[in-house]
């Protein structure tokens, strides 16, 4: 075994991230500067926050394709209500209630109707986007009202570091403590590893599923607030972009198996580091966005193939209808 035996996806990805970092630092002008390093961390912090929410879901053997839609549409609706002159408390309450309802509906259909998560969340993403875009907001982009706390949040710096970096760090710590040290966090792993066994042992598998989807929706809302703060508006076209796949990429590439029960916050951090360094290097190299998309998706495909080779499925044990 030796060296090869100790290789796993997480270590490989970490090694690649370090290698790219070293190469970029040596060859790219302006890469290894304090400003650029902060920019790297900042660029992946919103992605990383979303990936943390996704990671908890994936570890519990699920997936949430509605995160970007919930993120963009809930915040756009919130800002629209503010723009229409509603009081902040009422608008925030309504937006949060909407987010919880969507998360609950996702979780309910997955847990109790036993519909595959991937379909539920694909459908709810389409529904959330369509409902908010056609009924609740007037245009694709909704600006943050001037002087609102969201705008101030976006401009907030602590020791020259933007606030979303601290939020990312805080959430990562919280997720780490939750997954590693709390009873409910451990249950997520058991339910992801073998839902039937977890249920037989007496864990509340179904209510926990619902709870996870509600949590991921709330995380998406938080990420949306941070995005709106830094851009001073919320552009709902992001729903049709590849951001969703970036989230999956950050989650999966660090070594969280899609079959569930594996991985942790460390994997998300490593995935986020790799993506952040890569995107930054590609931007410095002036690679067009279209090619960046191609490269990212090719890497995601490689990650999935790798995941499939490391955790193979076979005809005798594969679940029927497990697509």
């Amino acid at each position: 075994m030796g060296f090869l035996g100790s290789l796993n996806q997480e270590r490989i990805v970490f090694a690649i991230a370090v290698a790219i970092f070293v190469i970029a630092a040596l060859t790219l002008p302006g890469f290894f500067t304090a400003d650029n390093l902060v920019a790297i961390v900042r660029s992946v912090s919103v992605l990383g926050i979303l990936a943390l929410g996704m990671a908890v879901i994936v570890i519990g053997r699920g997936i949430d394709l509605s995160m970007v839609a919930v993120m963009a549409m809930s915040v756009a609706w919130y800002l629209q209500m503010l723009g229409n002159g509603m009081s902040d408390g009422a608008a925030l309450g309504l937006a949060l209630a909407g987010v919880v309802v969507i998360g609950f509906a996702n979780g309910f259909l997955v847990a109790y109707a036993e519909v595959p998560a991937i379909f539920v969340t694909l459908a709810s993403a389409s529904f959330v986007y369509g409902l908010v875009r056609s009924q609740l907001i007037g245009s694709d982009a909704v600006p943050v009202p001037p002087g609102h706390w969201v705008a101030e949040l976006g401009a907030l710096r602590l020791a020259d570091v933007p606030v979303e970096v601290f939020v990312f760090a805080g959430l990562a710590l919280a997720a780490f403590v939750f997954l590693r040290f709390t009873k409910w966090g451990r249950y997520v792993y058991y339910a992801g590893d073998n839902p039937a066994a977890a249920r037989n042992v007496g864990m509340p598998v179904r209510p926990m599923l619902v709870l996870r989807y509600v949590l991921s929706s709330l995380v998406a809302f938080a990420a949306g607030i941070l995005t709106a703060g830094s851009l001073q508006s919320m552009n709902t076209r992001v729903v049709n972009s590849t951001q969703l796949y970036d989230i999956v990429l950050v989650t999966v590439i660090g070594g969280i198996g899609l079959a569930g029960g594996k991985g942790g916050v460390r994997n998300v951090l490593i995935g986020a580091a790799l993506i952040g360094i890569m995107l930054n290097a590609m931007t410095i190299l002036d690679i067009p966005l279209l090619y960046q998309n191609l490269i990212k998706s090719a890497i995601l495909l490689a990650a999935i193939i790798f995941d499939g080779v490391l955790n193979p499925r076979d005809e005798q044990t594969a679940q029927q209808g497990d697509i």
Partner: peptide, 23 residues
Amino acid sequence: YGTGTNQMVLGIMLAVAVTIDIR
């Protein structure tokens, strides 16, 4: 009907059809 209506209706149809199918 405006932008997004289609996605809303499709989302509902997909969710309902899949749920009925599974149940």
